[in-house]
Structure formats: structure tokens, C-alpha cells
């Protein structure tokens, strides 16, 4: 069994030189001299406000139609409903990270299944995989491996295309990879065909 990978936990601002933890007194704007390594660095400090949610109680939100209560918090007015299960949820329960409103339990389930791409923090870089397969195909084309590597490159390029489209990133590099992969396949097929024809001609000549 693999040994567990030690995780380095983040403990807040530290000296960018020696990584010694900076206490609240040391977090200030201007030139700071680290109390640990005595070396200077320039800094700008911020005092970010705590995020506060606008949670409205049912009584306060009463309109002529009335307000629906949150399924988890009876005193809170529902602001929306879960797109997956339809549960009425208040601002506290609304788990929306660019995925649409989800209740906490649906969010947990979808994230466990890797079905919430905006919440994903780890993914495969298909564009790199397509590029590497294409380059490998160029190197090994003399061994008739241009065709399979080209096909693999196109397979990953298809996935990368979707990934880049979702991220709104440029696809120019990927298009170049696709062109090379297609050329690789054509050249590979031509190379195999030439070999077969050559062998057939040699057999004919021998006869």
C-alpha cells in the first residue's frame, strides 16, 4: 500500500523569503523586515470583511403570496430551489459555484461523482496529452507508429477541444496539433501502402 502523502497546510501570511509565520502585528503595508530572517520585503495589507449572507426570515419576507420556508431552516425564507431535487433552500443552503442552485446534499453527491465541473480542482490536461501523442507519432513514424499515435492524438484532441471551449481559451495550438496528427495518419497509411506495393513488386520480380 502507498504511504500517505504528507500535506503541507496553509497557515496564513508568512515571510515570502523564509516562510516564517507572520503574526497580525506584522501584517501591514510598506516595507516589512521579517522578524525571523531580518530581510526586507514590500507588502500591501488588506482587511477583508467577513462575508455575510443576506438571510431573510419567513416573517419578514411575508408578501401577499407569502414566503416559502427553507427545507433545512424552518425560520428562513427560501430564496430558490435545488435544480436537482427541487427542495426549497435559503441563502445559507444555496450551494452555487457556477453550477446553478443546489442543496447541500445534492452538491455533495454530485461532487463525489465528479459531475460538477466548475467545482473540480483537479483535472487532466488533454491538450498536453494530444500534443505529446502527436510528437511521439512524428518520432516513431518510421516504425509505422504514426497511425496509432495520430489516432490517439486525435482522440485526446477531441476531449481537449471541449475542455478549452468550456474554459474560453484559445484553440490555435490544438488546431495545429490536429493538423499534424491528420498528416501523421495520412503519411503513415501512405508509408504502409508503399511498403505493401514494394513487397508485392519484389515478389512479382522474383517470380
Amino acid at each position: 500500500m502507498d504511504a500517505p502523502v504528507p500535506m503541507t497546510s496553509y497557515e496564513g501570511p508568512s515571510c515570502p523569503r523564509c516562510h516564517a509565520r507572520l503574526t497580525a502585528d506584522w501584517i501591514q503595508s510598506g516595507t516589512i523586515i521579517c522578524p525571523d530572517c531580518n530581510k526586507p520585503f514590500e507588502a500591501t495589507a488588506f482587511r477583508p470583511p467577513q462575508r455575510r449572507l443576506e438571510v431573510v426570515s419567513v416573517a419578514a419576507a411575508l408578501t401577499p403570496e407569502g414566503a416559502n420556508a427553507c427545507a433545512n431552516h424552518a425560520h428562513n425564507a427560501a430564496v430558490t430551489n435545488c435544480v436537482r431535487c427541487g427542495l426549497f433552500i435559503c441563502a445559507l443552503c444555496n450551494m452555487d459555484v457556477g453550477t446553478g442552485p443546489h442543496c447541500p446534499s445534492c452538491f455533495d453527491r454530485l461532487q463525489a461523482d465528479d459531475a460538477l465541473s466548475p467545482a473540480a480542482t483537479r483535472y487532466r490536461d488533454y491538450a498536453s496529452m494530444a500534443r505529446i501523442a502527436m510528437i511521439a507519432g512524428l518520432f516513431f513514424s518510421f516504425l509505422f507508429l504514426g497511425v496509432p499515435f495520430g489516432a490517439v492524438s486525435l482522440f485526446y484532441a477531441r476531449k481537449a477541444f471541449k475542455q478549452l471551449r468550456d474554459e474560453g481559451r484559445s484553440k490555435i495550438g490544438l488546431i495545429i496539433v490536429i493538423i499534424f496528427a491528420v498528416l501523421e495518419i495520412i503519411a503513415g497509411i501512405a508509408w504502409i501502402a508503399a511498403l505493401i506495393v514494394g513487397l508485392a513488386t519484389m515478389a512479382k520480380v522474383k517470380k
Binding site: P13, T44, T121
Partner: peptide
């Protein structure tokens, strides 16, 4: 951050920035 073909993404929200340094 990339390790092989695996990309790990993390974010520092602008509303949660505590300190920016340059040295």
C-alpha cells in the same frame, strides 16, 4: 500547478486577499 498530465487548480478570491508582497 501541473504534475504530469494532472492539473490542480486553486484560487485566492480577491475578496479574501490578506497580504500581497514583492521582493
Amino acid at each position: 500547478s501541473r504534475a504530469g498530465y494532472e492539473v490542480t487548480r486553486k484560487r485566492v478570491l480577491l475578496e479574501e486577499v490578506l497580504l500581497v508582497t514583492i521582493h
